[in-house]
Design a binder for these strands. Structure first.
Lengths: 215, 215
DNA sequence: GGTTGTGAAGTAATTCACAGCG
DNA sequence: CGCTGTGAATTACTTCACAACC
């Protein structure tokens, strides 16, 4: 076990192994080899073993890994056994969909607050949560802090919302707005850009079409 | 200019430069240096120049880049000047939000069909599109092909939906279901996993908390 | 025997640093 | 002179291949 930092790609894969392991548990499978688990996760056995090696030694040579034990080890070491709270800002189309997304609670994330600046939406309930006015964001989140802020506003509003979230003391932001945000050191930022995902696919389609033409 | 393949990270960054450039155009800024543009995109100048070098030489030494020209060059070479069509499968919470997402049409993506297997939803209209029965998916998309299939179903259904999309002839899939999909060679797949994004943030939060405890 | 864990080797991506050119 | 474009150096990630171990 190296005690160096986790490469970010390793982190992403560990999370996907975790998901596969949870499926395995559901299927009642108690032990698995690096070969088989890596296949389910869409990677290679050596990659998987190397990934695990950043966290520790969890397997038994000649045998494989114990499903339940691996789940516990990985989730503990990644800090995913702790429940986390979040707030969503922006109650257009995407915000409410995220609020109702059942994958979040399943993975221990509880949406605790929702904000929008549209006074027509403020006061309404979505998924059991009352939408508050964005102007109350800093005050509300200072009184009732959350771990993660989720931005689902239009691009124009995203930076100012991020600033407010940071002011409230938030240290992690997931941004769905198609805008590049500036955040101070110590604040973690992840960007999900729906249009760029399609653009990436569009690029590969065009590449294929070009290749076909050449033949 | 290397004529080798684009590294996938370079592709992602090129798309983000493109977005910044479009903002610049809106602001009426006609020329920009690698230094400034890279800052806006959240990367380094050398990185940006290297990224561009995979596509060609677009700048003027001693001066910088012409905004409009760069936009045209990048979007042409990435094939993003062509409009693309898509179909969404799964009309739970996320599907309709995606159907209404205005970023898609803005970037030349037209959602052309929507499917759900719930007979209560079939026939209803969302965002100007009639929801069809998933059982008609292959037939419908063979008659009216689309470029990209978007999966917004629960994890359990994702693989079988993917199989149907592939059967219909689709070569690009964007999957929002938290499931690892098997697709044949030649079919491009991108995965957006909302929960893992939060899990990644949760990991970094825990790391910070541990570090703080040690001090 | 069979599978893990891991240094070593190989490959890919990033950053440096400067020649080249307007 | 100023800024781009790019080989060379560096750093990060992946794969190999085998010793270690049950």
């Amino acid at each position: 076990m190296k005690n160096s930092v986790l490469p970010s790609k390793t982190l992403a894969r560990l999370i996907s192994y975790l998901r596969c392991l949870q499926d395995l548990r559901t299927e009642g499978i108690q032990k698995i080899s690096s070969e088989e688990l890596s296949q389910r996760a869409g990677t290679k056995a050596a990659q998987l073993r190397k990934d695990f090696s950043y966290l520790g030694e969890f397997g038994v040579r000649g045998v494989g890994y114990n499903t339940q034990n691996l789940i516990e080890q990985i989730s503990t070491r990644l800090g995913l056994n702790i429940n986390r709270s979040a707030a969503i800002v922006g109650m257009g189309k995407l915000g409410p969909a995220l609020l109702n997304y059942k994958g979040f609670p399943e993975h221990g994330f509880k949406i605790q607050a929702a904000f929008d600046k549209d006074s027509k939406k403020v006061g309404q309930k979505v998924g059991g949560i009352v939408i508050r006015d964005s102007s109350e964001l800093v005050k509300t989140l200072k009184e009732n802090p959350v771990d993660i802020g989720i931005i689902a506003t239009p691009a124009e509003a995203a930076q100012s919302v991020a600033n407010k979230l940071i002011k409230s003391g938030i240290k992690a932001i997931l941004n769905f707005a198609p805008a590049i945000l500036e955040v101070p050191d110590g604040v973690h930022l992840r960007q999900v850009d729906l249009s760029s995902e399609l653009q990436i696919l569009a690029f590969y389609l065009q590449k294929d079409e070009e290749a076909k033409e050449r033949n």
